[in-house]
Simulated assay, not measured.
Amino acid sequence: MSSDLFPNADTPPLADNSRRSFLKQSGGILGLALAPPLASQAERLTAYSKVIQGATDITLRVNSQAHTVRVEPRVTLLDTLRERLDLTGTKKGCDHGQCGACTVHINGKRTLSCLTLAVMQQGKEITTIEGLAKGDELHPMQAAFIKHDGLQCGYCTPGQIMSGVACVQEGHATTDAQCREWMSGNLCRCGAYPNILAAVREVASQSSKG
């Protein structure tokens, strides 16, 4: 067979797979040519990443007193109160915001301190169970819990009292059903709920008369 008729007889024809490979390679080269430099992408990502690293000094106002503590950004208000300020009345129960044992007041509103970062609370007024009484004079809610025996093991009691005080201030203790609903975030594993309810309702009734 004459090579003049088939000048490329010794070279196999371009297969379909080879064509696809060629197109893919061409597309990849074009994509790299059009893509922005990796350095500029990294710079943009870095610009949006304002990360505070390491421990830093913060000032917290707790029970009307200013405290300067050194904490890392990830430290919770609960751990700061207990481990740095020695205010152990606030209890660590579930550490997942489900039991209410760690309830404190921040600017007068009840807050789960185990889900709250300490560094975010600067400039705010924090009240713990230690800050309710005025010297030897108990807060009415504390006195009511004692009167109605609203505690057994006592572990949940600080959170129950703090939540009860806020519940009354919010106007959410006008009926038994309403009080149960708005206190439902505080669990008592001993089952002292009837006595807790009686204590909160008594304080609510006194507040309405006042």
Rank of each mutant, 00 (worst) to 15 (best):
Q65P: 00
I58K: 09
L45N: 13
A55F: 11
N63D: 15
K50W: 04
I52Q: 13
A42R: 15
S49N: 15
S49K: 15
R70I: 03
S64V: 01
S64Q: 02
V51R: 11
T68W: 01
K50N: 14
S49A: 13
R70E: 10
I58M: 10
H67E: 04
S40F: 10
R70Y: 00
T59P: 07
S64A: 03
E43R: 05
Q65C: 00
I58T: 11
L45W: 08
R44V: 13
A42Q: 15
V71E: 05
L60I: 00
S49P: 05
G54F: 12
V69H: 07
Q41E: 03
L60Y: 00
T68E: 08
A66K: 03
N63C: 05
K50L: 07
T46F: 05
A66N: 02
Q65K: 01
T68I: 05
T59F: 01
A66Q: 00
I52G: 05
R61K: 15
A66S: 03
L60M: 02
T68H: 05
T59C: 08
Q41R: 13
E43W: 05
Q41A: 07
G54T: 11
N63V: 08
A47I: 06
T59I: 01
A66E: 03
D57C: 04
R70A: 07
S64W: 03
A55W: 08
T46M: 05
Q65T: 01
G54R: 08
T46E: 11
V51E: 11
R44I: 10
